[in-house]
Design a protein around this nucleic acid. Sequence first.
DNA 1: TAGGCCATCTGGTCCT
DNA 2: AGGACCAGATGGCCTA
Length: 182
Amino acid sequence: MKSKGKASKQSRRKWSHPVPELEPDTEPGSSEQEGSEASVRIGSSWRSSLRSSDVKWQGASGGGRRRRQYGSSKERSVRRLESNERERQRMHKLNNAFQALREAIPHVKTDKKLSKIETLTLAKNYIKALTTVVLDMSGSCLTAGAVQSDAKLLQCYQQHLEEEGEEDLTQFHLVREFTLIF
DNA sequence: TAGGCCATCTGGTCCT
DNA sequence: AGGACCAGATGGCCTA
């Protein structure tokens, strides 16, 4: 096992540390950065494309400081913490999905777990290989050169499995395909 | 030490 | 209106 695991994860910056400083002056168009509506500060970055129709702003009219309405400072802090928590949960779900994907795709087992980009790349190759296998096996019911819908493909694949009544053939082809691809 | 990978924060935008 | 989604920034950990 690699050491880059729980220990390091737990030592990461904890989200439970004090309520983040929500300095009003760091909001879009604030004085900290001379942000215009076309150049807006987000967190520590800048992003363009503000749609003024979607955002309620208050403050000086006709240019000057404008501030989004979020209620009191305490209310903003609570909202931010709630959003952070939701975002963490969302990312955790995403990571769980990545883990499930890692376990679903065959790859050379190593101590090092697949990175996200590796996982996606392997998954893409896996799908390609499976598609090839299905097309190979479906030769009897697919006309060569014809454009087949996914539904048709699946139907033929299922039909094939029912007729053959075995999965060993699939496994065999899979192994063969991956031997070729990787 | 540089670079890769990752978790988290953040605020704009989209969607219901 | 509020939650989900997205992407940039930041900083920590690990490896070569």
